[in-house]
Every structure is written in C-alpha cells, then in structure tokens.
Computed example of a mutant assay.
Amino acid sequence: MRQQIRDEILSISPFDALERDDISRCLTWIDSGVELCRAIKPATPPMHLVSYFVVIDDGYVLLVDHRNAKLWLPPGGHVEQGEHPRVTVGRELEEELGFVASHPIEAPLFVTITATVGLTAGHIDASLWYVLRASRHQSIKFDEREFEDICWFPFNEVPFERADPHMKRFLAKLAISEKV
C-alpha cells in the first residue's frame, strides 16, 4: 500500500513552490518507513494521511462546517491502515454526506501538509485532495455529529478567513486544471 500512496502523490503536478515542497516532504515521509495512518485519536502518530474530497458543481464547492476544527473544510477523513486513499474517499462520502460518487474517483489534484487546529490540534495532516462532482440540488444527509452545517459556496464566495488555509490555492489550481 505504501507504494500505491506514493504513486498517488507522484501523480500530482505541483501548483506552486509550496505544493512542490509538500510533495517532497510527503515522499520523504513515506520512504522513511514510519506509520502513515492514524492509530490512536487524535495524534498517534503525530503525522498521518488524510483524504479530502472537494465536491464541486458548476462553479460551486460544497464545504462542511467542521465541529472540531471550527473551519469550513472539504469533507474527508483519515486513511485507515491497509486502505487506499481513494477507498477512503468513497467510505467517507457515504459516512459524512450519505451518497455514493456517480463517477470513478480519479487521482488527487492537490496535496498539503497542515498543522491541525481546533479541539484536537497538535498533529499534522498530510492531505490528498480529490475532486468529486455532484449536483448541488441533490439531497445530502450530512453527519450532524461531525458537522454544524454544510453549504454550497460559489467559488468566489468561499469564506477563506474561516476555511482550510490552502482552500484558495486549491481553487486556483482547480480553475487552471479545468478552465472553470
């Protein structure tokens, strides 16, 4: 599985110097042989792999108001031991939003390394950002234990001051990659 995770990261074309550095740091981390998946909540090991999935629809992005992080984030979750990050996306999509992807989950578009904030601050997430398409008019049953709310934001109205610190960079990369 380690090689498959490495391949996911290698599939990403860096958007900027920060992403180039995050790719390099992720590869070094993977090659070090340390545990990649969270074993004990919230921070063992201190750095672990996350699959974000950014749900989009015609210039809109679905974000969740995460109870713990106190931020508007893409949905997602921690990759479990022996689980491919794309499988994590499918599992978390059903658990967190109550639906199944209508298309195959493609390679990640983006990767970040971020210190966590909120109630369980104190660890580092190495996050693969996957893009999913869904209709903003479809019914979504979100996990109310994990999220205060969900909202479809037009790309230019995302509340960046209370969002993942890399969201603006992600949307800029998405715009270039999809000509949105």
Rank of each mutant, 00 (worst) to 15 (best):
H103G: 07
I150Q: 09
G122D: 01
G77V: 01
D21R: 15
F142N: 07
W29E: 01
G77E: 00
F153I: 03
I56F: 07
D143S: 07
L71C: 08
A134T: 00
P104S: 12
F110H: 05
F99N: 02
I140A: 04
H137N: 13
E95P: 05
G82H: 05
L18G: 14
I12N: 01
A126G: 08
I23G: 05
L63D: 01
P42I: 01
T114P: 05
L174C: 13
E157Q: 15
R91E: 04
F155M: 11
K173L: 00
S135Y: 07
L109P: 12
S177M: 12
Q138M: 13
L71W: 01
F170V: 03
P75F: 02
S135V: 02
F170G: 06
E106H: 11
T116F: 01
T120A: 12
T112H: 07
K173T: 01
E96C: 05
E35Q: 02
I30M: 01
C26K: 00
R38C: 12
L119V: 12
R136A: 07
D31Q: 06
K141C: 12
R6D: 11
I12Y: 00
D57Q: 08
S102L: 11
A134F: 00
E92Q: 14
D149T: 09
K70Y: 12
N156D: 15
K41L: 14
I113W: 05
R169Q: 14
L71H: 03
V34S: 11
V50E: 10
D164V: 03
H137M: 13
E92N: 12
S127V: 00
R91W: 02
K179C: 10
A17R: 15
L132T: 01
E96M: 03
E161Q: 11
A43C: 09
G118D: 07
D58W: 02
H84S: 13
S11G: 06
G77Q: 06
F15A: 14
I9Y: 08
D149W: 07
I140F: 09
S51M: 04
A175P: 11
L93N: 00
S177Q: 14
I176T: 11
L128Q: 03
F160E: 05
F110C: 03
L109W: 13
R145S: 15
H66Q: 13
S139M: 13
K141Q: 14
T120D: 14
E106V: 08
F153A: 02
G59K: 05
V34E: 11
A115V: 05
I150P: 06
I140K: 06
D143I: 06
A115Y: 02
